[in-house]
């Protein structure tokens, strides 16, 4: 197509890819911690929804985005603790509990949004962008990467932080130990239940943070079902990235770029069926799953409840 400012289009596409990647990265980082500890959290989608609604509700009531983000994190954390109570303390099936939390959260947030906000909860609060001097002026890449809101930058800071905590700290070692061999970890003096609670609380808080980012950092409102399955994509990303925060962030960015490609091709006049274009990002995940099949060893105790003295 002639007459199009391609620099502007590419900037917008890249920027959109980054924003989409942030939501997925936040949720997948938390999921990685939970899975590393042996907890398969299928409630991640519901925790994102809970975080998203709580964030918008708090921001709308206080006029503060910070209060909204905090509320979103706390809501996710609370749902994570609920997941922990049911699966760690009571030994309930993780898959069933996770799906139940997702279905419950979808219903509850939909009901609350309808009851309190007539279905569409707008924040009325704005999260401004912060341009990093010099680098934000680089054509295309600059505004896309370095003229974002603070939550985007915070996400990229969290990636190495999670890598450090999981790989280099005593807590991280405990998480990996209870996910691989909880009996051995217990025998070595690790409090399995406590570590798993901490892991799922982190997973819930990050899912809540992801929901908060979606509705405050990307959009400026909440509506029922707004996460549209991103929690499950994050779950797949955590596994694809083999629980490495760096690989998770890279995978999320690739997914965002594939979505941007899907958006950009029709503008470029490439004549491809919309159905196929819609499929492209998910096809990418499937291809990655096939390529990595056999190379992705799940934590040995993933999904297995632990009870001292019972094997």
């Amino acid at each position: 197509m002639s007459g199009i400012d391609w620099a502007a289009v590419l900037t917008v596409l890249l920027r959109g890819a980054v924003v989409a990647a942030v939501t997925l990265t936040l949720a997948a980082l938390g999921e990685a911690v939970a899975e590393r500890a042996g907890l398969l959290n299928l409630g991640i989608e519901g925790m994102m929804l809970g975080g998203a609604f709580s964030a918008v509700d708090a921001a709308a009531r206080t006029g503060s985005v910070a209060a909204g983000v905090l509320a979103g994190i706390l809501a996710g954390l609370a749902m994570g603790v609920l997941f922990g109570c049911l699966t760690v303390s009571l030994g309930a099936d993780q898959v069933v509990v996770g799906l139940a939390i997702t279905i419950f959260a979808a219903g509850l947030t939909g009901f609350l949004a309808r009851d309190l906000y007539d279905g569409h909860a707008a924040t009325g609060a704005d999260l401004p962008d912060f341009a990093i001097p010099l680098v934000s002026r680089i054509p295309v890449v600059g505004p896309a990467l370095f003229d974002q809101n603070l939550l985007v930058y915070l996400t990229w800071v969290l990636v190495p932080v999670f890598a450090f905590v999981l790989g280099r700290t005593r807590f991280g070692l405990g998480v990996r130990a209870v996910g691989e061999h909880p009996f051995a970890a217990d025998a070595a003096g690790v409090d399995v239940a406590r570590v798993r609670y901490a892991a799922i609380a982190t997973g819930g808080a990050m899912a809540g943070f992801a929901g908060a980012f979606l509705c405050l950092g990307d959009l400026s409102f909440f509506e029922p079902g707004v996460t549209v399955g991103q929690g499950f994509i994050a779950l797949a990303l955590a596994m694809l990235g083999r629980w490495s925060p760096y690989r998770i962030a890279a995978g999320a960015l690739v997914f965002g770029l594939l979505r941007a490609l899907k958006t950009g091709l029709p503008i470029a006049g490439v004549d491809i069926q919309p159905d196929f274009l819609t499929m492209v990002p998910y096809l990418g995940i499937l291809v990655a799953l096939v390529v990595l099949a056999g190379r992705t060893a799940l934590p040995a105790a993933l999904g297995v409840p632990y009870a001292r003295g019972r094997r």
Binding site: V12, V19, L214, D218, L219, E223, P224, G225, V226
Partner: peptide
């Protein structure tokens, strides 16, 4: 209900 996806398409 994909508001974020709608936003990406519209921005482009």
């Amino acid at each position: 209900e994909d508001a974020a996806g709608a936003k990406r398409e519209t921005e482009a």
